[in-house]
Design a protein around this nucleic acid. Structure first.
Length: 271
DNA sequence: ACTGGCTCCTGAGGGC
DNA sequence: TGCCCTCAGGAGCCAG
């Protein structure tokens, strides 16, 4: 499941292969993604140079001469750079054929990802416009979380996973960060103190930062853009570890559902 | 304005 | 061995 660290790992891996190249052609095999790939896209792209590759939350943004490409990996998406002779598989939905002869190939078995286009700045696109702060930006801190959460009765874990509050905190890292901060995931977001939110902001930064440093988590079908599986999973404290001993107190970790999402916690350490 | 529930999709994994 | 069922998950959307 590409979360923010995986997307950033993908961005870093792709950047040297994409930036500066021109797009010769978009080969679109399957436009039915999370949102349909715009029909006019194959006509927009040829000849455009890729000027930069950015990330906003879990979105990748390729800046072109005229407009921006907006890519989301969804649940099972991956991007890699391959030689054109490599045959496309069943779930390889589109290729960007580059001016240096290489191909940037998008694979997404579950088709929850997207390929969008805007002729203006991506940040003004409806998908990006209302996103919350980047968790690794200075603007994201305990004060922000405390202020934003006042009056919210939602479980803090579900609240944290709302990209309008903060981007890039998916289920894995929400579980991990709440464990690290010692906060019970079902606690109402509006009933957590400023001090505890300071700890949570720090826990989120640390958890995501470490995952990026280690090259992203590998879960099920995530594969790095260079084809190597990630290896952060071994450092997860609670995610998918129900019944295992809590790394802090040794009691058995629990699994429960919060907002229809699998949640892992230590009921002793998290209050 | 919030909140909870639902939806898209496919592969993995468990039970029999 | 093989089939069937359930589950997983990002994030938008909708109804209450």
């Amino acid at each position: 499941m590409p979360e923010l660290p995986e997307v950033e790992t993908t961005r870093r891996g792709l950047e040297p292969h994409l930036v500066g190249r021109r797009i010769e052609r978009l080969c679109l095999r399957e436009p039915r993604l999370r949102w349909p790939v715009p029909e006019t896209l194959p006509e927009e792209l040829p000849g455009q140079r890729i000027q930069g590759l950015d990330r906003r939350g879990k979105y990748l943004i390729a800046h072109l001469d005229q407009g921006d490409l907006i890519i989301h990996l969804g649940m099972s998406g991956s991007l890699r750079v391959v030689e054109p002779v490599v045959p496309a598989g069943r779930h390889d939905h589109w290729d960007l054929e580059l001016s240096d002869g290489w191909v940037c190939r998008y694979r997404d078995p579950r088709r929850f990802g997207s390929l969008l286009w805007t002729d203006g700045p991506a940040m003004r696109h409806p998908r990006l416009r209302d996103l919350g702060p980047e968790p690794l930006d200075p603007a994201f801190d305990g004060d922000y979380l405390y202020t934003a959460s006042r009056g919210r009765r939602l479980a803090v874990k579900a609240w944290l996973m709302d990209s309008h509050i903060v981007v890039g905190v998916g289920n894995i890292y929400a579980n991990e960060a709440l464990f690290r901060a010692g906060i019970h995931p079902a606690r109402a977001a509006g009933r957590i103190s400023r001090t505890r939110y300071m700890g949570l902001a720090q826990a989120i930064r640390a958890t995501l930062g470490e995952a990026i440093d280690q090259g992203g988590t590998s879960l099920r079908d995530f594969v790095h853009e260079d084809g190597k599986p990630g290896y952060f999973r071994q450092s997860l404290s609670v995610y998918e570890r129900a019944g295992c001993p809590c790394p802090r107190c040794g009691r058995s970790l629990q699994r429960r559902l919060i907002a229809q999402r699998a949640t892992y916690l230590c009921v002793h350490c998290q209050r």
